[in-house]
Design a protein around this nucleic acid. Sequence first.
DNA 1: TATGAATGAGGGTTCATTCAT
DNA 2: CATGAATGAACCCTCATTCAT
Lengths: 220, 220, 220, 220
Amino acid sequence: MQSERTIGINKENPILASLSKSAANKKKKRDSLLNTAFDLFTNQGIANTSISNIVEQAGVAKGTFYLYFKDKYDLRDRLIRYKASEILGKAYTALEATALTTLEDKVLFIAGNVISQLSDNRLLLKFISKNLSWGVLKHELVQITPGFEDDVNFVEKIQEAVKASDVKYRNPEVMLYMIVELIGSASYNSILNDEPMPIEKLRPFLMDAIRSIMRSQEIH
Amino acid sequence: MQSERTIGINKENPILASLSKSAANKKKKRDSLLNTAFDLFTNQGIANTSISNIVEQAGVAKGTFYLYFKDKYDLRDRLIRYKASEILGKAYTALEATALTTLEDKVLFIAGNVISQLSDNRLLLKFISKNLSWGVLKHELVQITPGFEDDVNFVEKIQEAVKASDVKYRNPEVMLYMIVELIGSASYNSILNDEPMPIEKLRPFLMDAIRSIMRSQEIH
Amino acid sequence: MQSERTIGINKENPILASLSKSAANKKKKRDSLLNTAFDLFTNQGIANTSISNIVEQAGVAKGTFYLYFKDKYDLRDRLIRYKASEILGKAYTALEATALTTLEDKVLFIAGNVISQLSDNRLLLKFISKNLSWGVLKHELVQITPGFEDDVNFVEKIQEAVKASDVKYRNPEVMLYMIVELIGSASYNSILNDEPMPIEKLRPFLMDAIRSIMRSQEIH
Amino acid sequence: MQSERTIGINKENPILASLSKSAANKKKKRDSLLNTAFDLFTNQGIANTSISNIVEQAGVAKGTFYLYFKDKYDLRDRLIRYKASEILGKAYTALEATALTTLEDKVLFIAGNVISQLSDNRLLLKFISKNLSWGVLKHELVQITPGFEDDVNFVEKIQEAVKASDVKYRNPEVMLYMIVELIGSASYNSILNDEPMPIEKLRPFLMDAIRSIMRSQEIH
DNA sequence: TATGAATGAGGGTTCATTCAT
DNA sequence: CATGAATGAACCCTCATTCAT
């Protein structure tokens, strides 16, 4: 699960190789702080993680932290956005490998994929908690490391799929908003506390709910 | 909106009048702490509120705090449960004044009423945030002040209404869970940030979504 | 080991029976505090025992504590004196059941008996620690409960035995002082930490040392 | 008696001179804390000395304390070990200036020298109290300041002297243990309270006792 | 850029003591 | 005598932030 802990950094990346040595070193420190912070945040909670903890485990000096982040919460927010975008990206990539055609099928596929990812990684779920909101997804999806912003924008892709859909919806934006909120919120208790039931038992109900929300929004 | 900030204390309450002088005084201190804490929590956030802040504004000594609460989070949890129960109680009371008969109508009424309450009181919404979960509603609704536990249990009442309904549902528990999560989560951004739109514009969509979720769960 | 925990109180004691009811009640509270404090002091240490702990477990109100003791250390000192006197008293009683005649034999018997008592009750040893000093024994042996001071004074008895001894010593007082200090101090580490060896292996060396000290003080 | 209060720091020390400026500064803070703490501990007792007291008088910030010591007791333990080692070291150094040959003479000399040091410095005696135990002497003698660990190990030297002695003893370890305990314990009351007599009057009795203990352990 | 020793305000918590009942 | 709610000073300890190197 190394990929879970290494954020947006690939040591064989040719782009990175082309950076000057000092810039690479700089990036290394930054990434070390990000990865370490994610580790600590997920394993012991944000409130229980001090900047001292982070720099110590990351192997950099305390003052260095302030060269890259305003404070602990600045770092946290960047992580949340990055991780949320990562989840959706993975789901979208998986979608592209399918032959699904209708928007309803696509949305259900992505929803299911996201739920699977979250239930496979409870620490991640706990961390991004209920922050997987539409607002975050829509406006704040950013590449965490400057210089790598050229990745695909998954939300844009989804919006394109909406436009391309044969079936039209009253307000696709709102529809997706409600679906995202429902998934994020309802999954949370189910995955973490098995309340009101384990996620695998809840899953078909959620799928039904999503489908019925979409159908109620169809324009004929 | 003073009533929003004064928790379970009614100086004309005959029960209270029958308490001994010292017991009444004790209650006064406790209530002062609760009310002050709610004020501070909602206005400046829990993380930014210290016990020192609370006792200072409440006009009691620091040690007194620990006579009544284990720590800041103990106090917070009691407040959340109490406030959540209060909201649902108000909605249920309003429901009783109507002539609605079907479960669908009743649920929609309560949902709408809760949304109205939350949008009328953004601070309260921020405080109970996304904590208006089914788990909290189902298991932890408590009267915050000892001696007043005899109030109606609203969740129980709702469950009775489910049983009494002519229309039957596949899994009413899950259905209500999803509805509560959807309302709590979707209202949050809409009310606080007008995202993706102001709550009054979002409201009909939410109602539709709730209705469609319920209909998809009907057993014929 | 009830007797270890009940200090100088015998509920069938006729003296006590003759006390007025309120006086008995008063004594009960006092004894409860003493017994509870000894329990807590030995089991969790004096520093970790608060007056709150004591009164709570003793079942009396906080203010009541101050009716009987100045503070925690006042209580502790009374306990130490009482317990030290109790140990010596037991040893002396056991001595009386023997037919030993010489002072050397008697002192060695008492020393051995005290060591046995201490090693049988490590908590007690820890509590009176190295406080089993001659000063305490000589000047401060008191009955812990007022009204029971008429018990035998064991130190006096020992001094009588010294006088009655055929063999005379240069300075019996100093000799006994050194013996008491040696026993108290040397036993401590041996019993609690097996350092430099377990008490049962150390015991013969100690007996030899005591005997040699006594012999070196003989006057011929 | 300044040397009693200044711990292991010699401003003319060439080793120190070779340290970097910041390292020297660091050491200065640490030593300031140690010296101040010893002052306060001896003059007003450990229990009555708070970390606030120490840092205030030492002229450093509160947080600085925790850069060097875990807590008050960590500091205390380091001081006790250091001071105990210092006393024995002085006694041993004095011994080397004599022409004494037998082990008995050497032990008696060291005992006398230690007693003199303790009676010259009652505060020090009170501080290390009865902690001058064989266990401490044997296992925990440490140099308090890092970088100065190369001093002679006095206990080792004594053990060598035992081996080199013509006269052999049954169990030299136990013999020395008992002697140390006797000196530490018997001196305490005598020096601090003149009980059972002032130390100078007690001294010959103690010497006799030590000699007799040693003789009783001789192997012929 | 990078460091890490130093800071000191402020946190939570405890607890001996008081005093009105 | 007995109570126990209330006190508030004092405690230990953390930690974000700074700044000379």
